[in-house]
Amino acid sequence: MSTITLLFSIFLLTLLMITTMAIVRTRNLFVAVMLMGIASLLIAASFFLLDAADVALTEAAVGAGISTVLFLGALALTSERERSPSSLPLLSLGIVAIVALIVIYATFDQPPLGSPSAPVQAHLTPWYIESTRELIDIPNVVTAVLASFRGYDTLGEVIVVFTAGVGVLFLLGTGASASAAGAPLSEDNAGLRHYLIPRILGRLLIPFILLLGFYVQFHGEYSPGGGFQAGAIVAASIILYSLLEGEQRALLVIPQGVLLAMMVGGVLLYGAVGVAGLVLGGNFLDYSVLDSDPVKGQQWGILLIEIGIGITVAGVLISIFHAFASRGAA
């Protein structure tokens, strides 16, 4: 990183520090959520400056489309203001300041930023980059590590996302219960139907957002992207649709049953690819045996499990949104 980009990065991080302090200080939760939006943008820009294009894309898809909507949905059902003041503010501040100083003291033992002799750069990084070229032959090393070298880990993460989604549905109920089957569509009070400009522009853009989601999904081996990002982008487009047309119509387009099938189906697809490796004589999640050419087999495996990830993430995020929104309607 040249000095000038380092300075940009420091400027962004300083803005981020100011934003977080303002988030914690304000007693108005709505303001805190809006400032969280700014913090998310700053974090994504910092990721980009630190060479993490894939991570910046994930933060963009999640932070811009989904996180604000979820927090606002929760605020609509609770309250916008904090009632009680901080408990023991001075004691907490003291403890927090001491811990911060200890952490800062510990950083003096860090290798300097970007140093080639840092532990992480020494052994693993060159190995991953070389092996990706040799064994998998796709340009995006992040996708290769995510889907193939650390496939077990990612399977675990997808199951965590799935479990969180199931937990939300257990706590709040599915959106389907609020709009019972056969209930008439309430046309007058649904979403932003009466706001002509947002509605028309939003409807115009939904196909493009979906298209971008599929592009990110299937181009993830060549450029930043992959299942996690694509799932979030597709979920954002459906969330936009239900903001515009109302909860019930969105549930007509993709019913709750389909969403549940997506949540389960993605995880099952991921697992099935792993089992297929076992059946064909390899190890669990070893994609080399999927094709006569091991490199081709790896590429097939990555494509399939990325689709599984995308389906599960989209299903979980849309279900969570419906669960929150239908609570508000009931």
């Binding site: 590590v145 880990d153 993460e157 996690f228």
Partner: peptide, 13 residues
């Protein structure tokens, strides 16, 4: 290094 990026990418979701 791709490794921290992989960990964090999944962690964000």
């Amino acid at each position: 290094s791709p490794l921290p990026q992989v960990l964090i990418l999944t962690a964000i979701v």
